[in-house]
Simulated assay, not measured.
Amino acid sequence: MPMDLTAVIGGIALVDHHVHGALRETVGRPEFEGMLTESDRPVPPWMTQMDSQLGFALRRHCAPLLGLEPSASAGDYWAARSARDPEELARLFLRASGTGHWLVETGYKGDMLLGPAGMAAAGGAEAREIVRLESLLEEVAPGATAAGLRDAFRAALRARCAEPGVAGLKSVVAYRHGFGFDPAPPSHAEVAGAAGRWLRRIAAGAAPRVTAPALLRMALWEAVETGLPLQLHAGYGDPDIELHRCDPLLLTGWLRAVEPTGTAVLLLHCYPYHRGAGYLAQAFPHVYFDAGLAINHTGARSAAVVAETLELAPFAKILYSSDAWGPPELHYLGALLWRRGMTRALTAWVEEGEWTAADAARVATMIGRDNAARVYGLDPAG
């Protein structure tokens, strides 16, 4: 009997290796629609964010879980959604995703979202934490001196890494500066000088937002020294970034410098630079990547993006993530669209005689679960 790839891929207990929590509170429709875009600006009053690839995918695939017909109207979708509380919505969509393990990044507006324990309970799965470097540095800074900031951050980072349930680290240097930074570790003088300027601004009442290249580099190199997997946002994101400075190819020198440490570097999302990320994953043994965020936002075109991730990198270097944040529909939709994209690409290659069905099933399982289990030291059963 021929292997049913749809069933095989649909049955993988996914490891979502980069995700944020689902909403823990009720939001209004304007706030909900604002969570369907990477823009941090209000949705203009003359349009709806439901009229987007993500909005159409949400109406098509999430509506049936709310008892509606596929592609129900935006108004009907909102009414059905509003009849359920956040706890019910989280259970419904998280469990329908078929995810076996969530690696939850907690560094962005975590007070609005379920933490790892909440995700595990709502999703009926396991969950571990990914610690954001810049958030930790900003927590440490107000109590530190310029000369002592590096040591204070190192101590705080090592303490967090030693906590049970912490699986890895993440940096948003792409947002704070971009990837065109000096790849070498910063000197003590560089760090102390940048720290002094930053701490003086904080003392004068500025928000403790770290943007100095020397401090961002310091945080990256301290993370590398822990040996934990290190995630880096790359490519597409909100307007706080300058997209041309987030091309992961700009990291080549730094990746080369990190290589002797053996620390795994995981490039997140990468769109529209996912093909370049595939090259880096092929070129460097410690580099991995995913298409994360782009899969939900490209909706009906997401199968093409998933297929493009399979072009160049060894299959042991590609991971699955949803990068869902907020509405639990995004956690479900990311999994559904990734499964659909993989099924379409691999089925076509099997039917063309390029791949065997057994190889297709094995590769899908590697990318959906086993690669992340290996990199993060998880139970491979999910």
Rank of each mutant, 00 (worst) to 15 (best):
H274Q: 14
D238H: 15
L268Q: 14
R256E: 14
T263E: 03
G278Q: 00
E259P: 02
T252C: 04
L251K: 09
E242L: 11
A281G: 00
L232A: 13
D247V: 06
I241A: 09
R245K: 15
R245M: 09
L249R: 11
Q231A: 09
L267M: 08
A277P: 03
L251G: 04
H269D: 13
A277C: 09
A264G: 06
D247T: 07
L230I: 07
L280Q: 03
H244Q: 06
T252N: 00
V265Y: 02
V265K: 02
G276Q: 07
A257Q: 13
P229N: 11
R275L: 11
V258F: 11
T263F: 02
H233M: 13
L266A: 03
P248F: 08
A281I: 00
T261D: 05
R256Y: 09
D240F: 12
E242C: 05
Y273M: 10
L267V: 10
G235W: 00
T226I: 04
L267N: 03
D240A: 14
D240Y: 13
W254G: 11
L243P: 00
C246Y: 08
A264N: 04
L243S: 02
E259Y: 00
G276A: 06
L243F: 01
L266S: 06
D247L: 06
T261S: 15
G237L: 07
W254Q: 14
P229C: 15
V258T: 12
R275H: 10
G227L: 10
H233S: 09
T252S: 09
Q231W: 13
A277M: 01
P229D: 13
P229Q: 14
L228T: 07
C246K: 05
L250H: 13
L266P: 08
G276P: 00
H233E: 06
L280D: 00
H269P: 13
I241P: 02
A234Q: 10
T263W: 01
A277N: 03
Y236T: 08
G253P: 02
G237Y: 13
C270V: 06
R275W: 03
P260S: 03
C270L: 04
I241C: 08
G278N: 00
L232E: 12
A234Y: 01
D238N: 15
Y236K: 07
D247I: 03
L268T: 08
C270P: 02
G227K: 11
A257S: 15
